[in-house]
Computed example of a mutant assay.
Amino acid sequence: MSGMTQSTRPRHHSADPSEDVLLGVDTHKDVHVAAVITATGAMLDTRSFPTTREGYRQLLAWARAFGSLRRAGVECTGSYGAALTRYLQSENIAVTEANQPDKATRRRRGKTDAIDAASAAQAVLSGRATATAKTTDGPVETIRMFKMAKSSAVKSRSQAINQLKAVLVSADTALRESMTGLSNPKLIRRSLRDHPGSCGTSHAAAACQADPASHRRDQRPHHPDHSGDPGLCTEAAGPLRRRPGYRGCAADSGRRQSGAHGQCRRRLNPDPVWAVEL
C-alpha cells in the first residue's frame, strides 16, 4: 500500500493554531480514517492514513496542524487501533476508547468511515465516551497473550478427547467394551497402544481413535500456564492489591481483572461490579 495520505472530504472550518482540537479515528486493518473537530464540534477535515509507523507520524502531524491537540477518540483500541493508541499515548495524547455509533445514529447520519471518525471525536467531546484506552503492553498484555494460548490449547484438547469418545459410540462392540470405563489418560494410552496397521471397520475405528489421542498427548506439554507466573501476576495485579478491602482472589480471576484494567488504574471502577469476578 502506498504511503501517501488521502483526503476523504473537504475542509469545513478554517484552522487556528491556538484553538483546541480533538481527533477521532475510525480504525481498519490497512488504513485508518481520521477526523479533526474543534472544541465546539465544527468539522475541520478528514483524511486516511496507512497503518504504518510513518502513517501514524503523518496522522499526528496533520492533526496538530489544526491547533492544540490533547485528546483523541479511537475505535477498536484493543485490536485494529492498538498500535495507533500506543503511539498517540507516547506523544502525550489522552486516548479515549470510542464505541461505534449505534444503529439509530447511523440511520440518521449515514455510514461512512469519515462519519465514524467524526463520531468518535464528538463522543469524546460530548462526554459519551469516557473509558481510558488500555496501553496493550507490559505484564498485563503478556498475561493476556499467554492466557489466550492456554485457552486455545485447552479447547483443542477437549475437542480431541470428545472426538475420541464419539468414535467409541458407533465402534465395534468388542472395541467399545474393551475401552468402556477407562479414564481419559488410560483411554488415550490404550488408543495409542492398540493402533493397528490393517484394514477393516474396527481397525479404522481404532485408527480414528489413535489420531485424536496422539493430538491430545502432543498438546499437553505445549500449554504450560505461563500466566500463573507469581512475579508476573504480582506486578500486573498491583493496582488491584491496593484497593480497599481487597482480600485476594483466585489466579484466573486475578488474570481477568488485570486484563480488564489494562494497566490503567483509572479504569478501575470503585462500584461493586468487581464482585462478579471475585
Rank of each mutant, 00 (worst) to 15 (best):
L164Y: 06
A63G: 10
V74C: 03
F66S: 15
H203A: 15
L59K: 06
R144S: 08
R128L: 07
A82T: 04
P17W: 06
S202K: 08
T142H: 07
S202T: 14
L168I: 12
A210M: 03
F49T: 06
P270H: 00
Q6A: 12
K155N: 12
S258G: 09
A104W: 06
T234H: 04
L125E: 01
A160Y: 00
G245V: 03
T201Q: 14
M43E: 10
R86V: 02
H215R: 15
S170Q: 13
P10G: 08
K186G: 01
R241T: 12
A237T: 04
A42P: 02
Y246V: 06
L125Y: 05
C249G: 02
R266P: 03
T173M: 08
A61M: 13
R193V: 06
K103A: 15
A160P: 04
D16Q: 09
Y80L: 09
S152C: 09
V273E: 06
V276T: 14
G181S: 10
L69W: 02
A153K: 08
H203K: 07
A65M: 13
F146V: 05
L84D: 03
H223Y: 14
I143G: 01
V74D: 02
R255P: 00
T105M: 09
M145L: 15
S48Q: 11
R265M: 08
T85A: 04
A72Q: 04
G55Y: 07
T52N: 06
T51Q: 07
C199Y: 13
D137Y: 04
R157S: 13
H13T: 14
T40P: 00
L187F: 09
A118V: 01
A133L: 10
V31T: 13
S198H: 12
E75M: 01
V21W: 03
M148S: 15
P230S: 09
R107I: 11
R190I: 07
D16L: 10
A206G: 12
P244Q: 00
R64C: 12
V25Y: 09
A251Y: 03
V124H: 04
G259E: 01
P244S: 03
I143R: 02
T135F: 09
R220T: 12
F146T: 12
A210H: 05
G228F: 02
L44A: 05
I37N: 03
A250E: 02
R255E: 02
D225G: 00
Q219Y: 13
H12A: 12
S214T: 05
T132E: 11
A204N: 14
V36A: 05
H195R: 15
R71S: 07
L60R: 10
Q89I: 10
P224K: 08
G81M: 09
P17I: 07
S227V: 03
G110D: 00
